[in-house]
């Protein structure tokens, strides 16, 4: 392990000067990203929490200050749970939450069902085919997310490609209403997040020990049974990693329900957007964000656990 310890040597010049103040190059390398993330990632969340506890007001910025100097020159802290209270009592938010969980969950399942055979097929393919096939899976990710979601408007609309093909085939007489329904949202999320399911699944399946399957075959186990009792259980870590990569961002998805879902597809990300941009209620939007974050803390921690294992430290 190349543990770069505080160098024994005394440097001259600029480095030496830094060292004299107890600052090694290593400390500098560590300080910059650490400070950046503290300032631009951690502190913003504390501010969200703070503003979620403030009251909305007609001003710029549109919320009350938590800490105010009173006339007796004492600090007065005004905290209100009004925003959280209105979230719990208003059906709109509860419905949006439950809907988000449902939509994210079903889309994750769709990704798993569609993505597993693909990942498995690539892992079983001839090694020289694997890299190009993986490239094909990753390629759509490099094109614009927004444009890929937009493509589905042309496919799913009443006068769209899908309805025209189905009517031409004589399967249906009248166009199906798919666009602007929750179904379109499921399709959009599954489509956009499918590569995130396939990649971790592939990397688990590819590393799978083939000798186990050979042993099972030698002992007379049929391939489907070997798959169910060996491959499937061993690929659970990949499934979990993929499911988290789909489920967590899908919970807060805004663009897909907005473009494909129609006005009835309530999702929490959309509610937050509306509170913020249309109603200009920043404290309520912050409260929605805090509630969403609380819900996602467990999945995010789980994800970091998986991520940490993959990244591995020496």
């Amino acid at each position: 392990m190349a543990e770069i310890t505080q160098s024994e040597m005394r440097h001259t010049g600029f480095l030496g000067l830094l060292q004299r103040f107890g600052l090694s190059g290593r400390a500098l390398v560590m300080a910059v990203p650490y400070a950046w993330l503290l300032l631009f990632f951690l502190i913003p969340f504390l501010i969200v929490l703070k503003i979620a506890l403030a009251e909305s007001q007609m001003a710029i910025p549109p919320f009350t200050a938590l800490v105010e100097m009173t006339e007796e020159l004492k600090y007065q802290i005004t905290v209100t749970f009004y925003n959280f209270h209105s979230m719990v009592t208003d059906d709109l938010y509860i419905i949006a939450y439950l809907n988000s969980v449902k939509i994210a969950f079903i889309s994750t399942l769709c990704c798993l069902v569609l993505g597993y055979p693909v990942a498995y097929a690539i892992a079983k393919a001839d090694p020289k085919w694997r890299a190009p096939l993986l490239m094909l899976i990753i390629l759509p990710f490099w094109t614009s997310f927004l444009i890929r979601v937009y493509a589905w408007i042309g496919i799913l609309s009443n006068n769209g490609v899908l309805n025209n093909v189905l009517m031409w085939l004589g399967i249906i007489d009248q166009p199906l209403q798919i666009l602007y329904t929750p179904t379109a949202t499921y399709i959009g999320i599954t489509y956009s997040y499918l590569p995130f399911m396939i990649l971790p699944l592939y990397s688990t399946l590819e590393r799978l020990d083939n000798t186990l399957l050979e042993a099972a075959a030698d002992l007379g186990c049929p391939p489907w049974k070997a798959f169910l009792t060996i491959t499937l259980p061993l690929s659970v870590p990949g499934m979990i990693a993929g499911a988290l990569l789909v489920f967590i961002p899908a919970m807060g998805e805004f663009v897909i329900p907005e473009l494909l879902g129609g006005p009835d597809t309530l999702m929490i990300g959309r509610t937050l957007w509306t509170e913020f941009f249309n109603n200009r209620d920043w404290p309520l939007a912050s409260a929605v964000a805090v509630a969403l974050l609380l819900f996602l803390v467990v999945p995010i921690m789980l994800f970091q656990n998986v991520q940490g294992k993959q990244g591995g430290h020496p």
Binding site: M1, L38, I47, V48, E253, A289, G308, G311
Partner: peptide, 30 residues
């Protein structure tokens, strides 16, 4: 990957990897 176990490593690694999955509406608002 190279600095071994330093103080606050788990915390730092958490902060780095959270934006990978964090819903964008939350990041944007924050």
């Amino acid at each position: 990957a190279r600095f071994g176990m330093f103080k606050g490593r788990a915390f730092f690694s958490g902060m780095v990897s959270a934006p990978l999955v964090m819903p964008e509406v939350i990041m944007g608002l924050a």
